[in-house]
Design a protein around this nucleic acid. Structure first.
Length: 645
RNA sequence: GCUUUUGUAGCUCAGGGGUAGAGCACUUCCUUGGUAAGGAAGAGGUCACGAGUUCAAAUCUCGUCAAAAGCUCCA
């Protein structure tokens, strides 16, 4: 007998070899029907795996993330099974579950799959799922595993098996399809009740761009049709929030083929929005002791050779700009830091001056691969809300904390509550990717982690994500529908001060090296605005929005009163317009609603005679009547509350 | 950069070897209306660009440019 402990701490004595499913059945038939897999002593396993030792058992259903993973992983097998039937001779790469669903990479040879074919494949999958095919696990010796796939002619699986230890290889079969797989899987395919194959894409074998590109089919599955419908509806919602769509609708930004790929053009309303964000940050930074500096858009190639950027990125960057004279080369600046280093070097510094904080909304240009460009989130020319702090080693932690405070202020003002703090450190297996001494890296990495702990931030540490010159702390914001975007960044750098030979005179009257902190709370104005659009679905906070208020006269007779109201509001610096069109109130309201104008003021006979306003709030509706003073107060209050810090 | 897909009016899209369509937006007129679409008329397009096939190309083929999804990359 073995002792099984359930999550509620109750225990059960069962005979050795009992499966999780049998235990579930023993608890209740209903539970057993919903069990997708199990977690035994912390490891996710098949519900049909015999348990041979004492341990903690958790039965996993659709409500558990691991249960979903099991469902999706099994769905990937079902996809492969369907493909094997519909496209004989297909070779398979890997087919894992992912955050939202699953995919399978395959080599279809001469055959191709189109978007329309996905429907046929879906149908086949549903057909096979309904057959209630059991998943069967089998442990296979390496030699046999290799032979199986050599005979089948699937070199991808052979390659995968070659990398595995003998004794750790298992096959799973469902129906006629057998796959190399670690598992775990569903008890049978009948749990999969709704499937949607979402898209087809190319994906390099093992993520290596030098190897063959396989066909990847993405999909998602659910235990209920309703859940699939809800998911698809959610995707539709996401599309509506797409900043590229809203940016066009609200006339915030555009792109032009003639200007060039990845080079955004800010339209007047977008420029207004951005300028307001910049001014807000400028004020915050001024209060925090930053000094504005300005540097040009190009710099001598030598500047970037010194900084190390040229060696690292020169080959994949815009080619240098040359002059009529031989031998002169300039780069479009991809970074502001080298310029700021030279500003620091303008004169000698005493330890008493530090920290020195140079801030600049610096526009930089980077050659991003054409396939990478995406709306405003990934562009070739963008403006960083950059600053570099030059400080003594003993000041690093306090300065870092100060920056964290600014980032949090900004996120607070914009109501970004749900963010993730990520600390990126070196990849220990790939030390050549980085410049600088091991000692400095260690100092920098531990400083960041200590600060994060002292600031009470929740964070994750990710290896291999550091910049080549130093570790960093990034703030990733989730938008309203859960997508992650990297915004603010803070980076400790011991390397550039070394390369630029930056110095200060210490209290010992000797020369010392300052430490540099690179930081950008927004990250880039472009990406930040993109995220802000998606986060708010275009309903910007009142203090930011280009048009705060629109006056809607009921008819021409009230245009004079509308003008009077407008001029009063302008005295209070409220951004307002009048809709003079000869349309009915309903139409004017509808248009203002669609354009996300926060306040609509309806003026007609009633308002003019009592010198009041009828106020309507966007997405909320009629707020009733109020005086101009009351409205001004209300708006000012709303603005002040959002921007205080 | 790679794979797949797409490019028709300002926007959203239909059509498709015989010289272009809808809705919205825009202009004018009628209407002067009370909390999400009043009516009519009009204007607007070398069908992304270039080449080829054809009696004839917006439509077919190739190339270029741009966009979308994914991969790879991201100082």
């Amino acid at each position: 007998m073995i002792t099984i402990t359930l999550p509620d701490q109750s225990t059960r004595q069962v005979s050795r070899g009992t499966t999780a499913m049998e235990i579930a059945q023993n608890i209740s038939e209903g539970l057993a029907r919903n069990v997708l897999s199990a977690k035994f002593n912390g490891k996710v396993v098949d519900s049909f795996l015999p348990l041979n030792e004492d341990g903690n058992l958790q039965l996993l259903t659709w409500n558990d993330p691991e249960g979903k993973s099991t469902m999706w992983h099994s769905s990937a097998h079902l996809l492969a099974e369907s493909i094997e039937q519909l496209y004989p001779g297909t070779k398979f790469g890997t087919g894992p579950d992912i955050e939202n669903g699953f995919y399978y990479d395959m080599d279809l040879g001469e055959q191709t799959v189109t978007q329309e074919d996905l429907l046929v494949i879906e149908k086949k999958m549903m057909e096979l799922a309904a057959q209630k095919q059991d998943f069967v696990r089998r442990e296979v010796p390496k030699a046999e595993a290799l032979k199986t796939f050599i005979d089948k002619g699937d070199e991808y699986k052979v390659e995968l098996i070659e990398g595995l230890e003998d004794g750790a290889i298992s096959f799973y079969s469902c129906g006629a399809f057998t796959d190399l797989c670690r598992g775990p899987h569903l008890p049978n395919t009948s749990h999969i009740k709704a499937i949607k194959l979402l898209n087809i894409a190319g994906a390099y074998w093992r993520g290596d761009e030098n190897r063959k590109q396989l066909t990847r089919i993405y999909g998602i599955s659910f235990p209920k049709k309703k859940e699939l419908d809800d998911y698809l509806a959610m995707l539709e919602e996401a599309k509506k929030r797409d900043h590229r769509k809203i940016g066009k609708e609200l006339e915030l930004f555009t792109f032009s083929q003639r200007v060039g790929q990845g080079l955004p053009l800010w339209l007047p309303k977008g420029a207004q929005l951005r300028e307001r964000l910049e001014n807000f940050l400028k004020k915050v930074q001024k209060d925090a002791g930053y000094e504005a500096v300005i540097s040009p858009h190009i710099g001598s190639k030598e500047l970037y050779v010194t900084s190390g950027h040229y060696a690292k990125y020169g080959a994949d960057s815009f080619r240098p700009i040359t002059t009529p004279n031989e031998g002169e080369e300039f780069l479009l600046k991809p970074m502001n830091c080298p310029h700021h280093c030279e500003i620091y070097k303008f004169k000698p510094h005493s330890y008493k001056e530090l920290p020195i904080r140079f801030a600049e909304f610096g526009t930089v240009y980077r050659y991003e691969q054409s396939g990478e460009l995406h709306g405003l989130t990934r562009v070739r020319g963008f403006t960083q809300d950059d600053a570099h702090i030059f400080c003594r080693p003993d000041q690093v932690k306090d300065e870092f904390k100060g920056v964290i405070k600014i980032v949090l202020q900004i996120f607070g003002a914009l109501d970004f509550k749900d963010f993730i703090t990520q600390i990126s450190v070196r990849d220990p297996n790939n030390p050549n990717k980085y410049i600088g001494t091991d000692e400095n890296w260690q100092k920098a990495e531990s400083a960041i982690i200590e600060v994060a702990q002292e600031s009470g931030l929740e964070y994750v540490v990710v290896e291999g994500e550091a910049a080549f010159y130093g570790p960093k702390m990034d703030f990733m914001v989730r938008d309203a529908i859960g997508r992650k975007w990297q915004l603010g960044t803070i980076q400790v750098d011991y390397n550039l001060p070394e390369r630029f030979e930056l110095e200060y005179i210490g209290d010992d009257n000797k020369k010392h090296r300052p430490v540099m902190i690179h930081r950008a709370p927004f990250g880039s104005m472009e990406r930040f605005v993109a995220v802000l659009i998606e986060h708010t679905a275009g309903k910007f906070p009142l203090w930011l929005t280009p048009e705060q208020l629109r006056i809607l006269p009921i008819s021409e007779k009230y245009h004079d009163y509308a003008e009077k109201v407008l001029s009063l509001l302008k005295n209070y610096e409220i951004r307002a317009t009048i809709d003079f069109r000869s349309e009915k109130a309903g139409k004017k309201i509808r248009d203002a609603e669609i354009q996300r104008v926060p306040y609509m003021i309806i003026v007609g006979d009633k308002e003019e005679s009592t010198q009041t306003l009828s106020v309507r709030k966007q997405a909320e509706g009629d707020l009733g009547s109020m005086s101009i003073d009351e409205l001004v107060q209300k708006i000012n209050h709303e603005v002040a509350q959002a921007t205080q810090y």
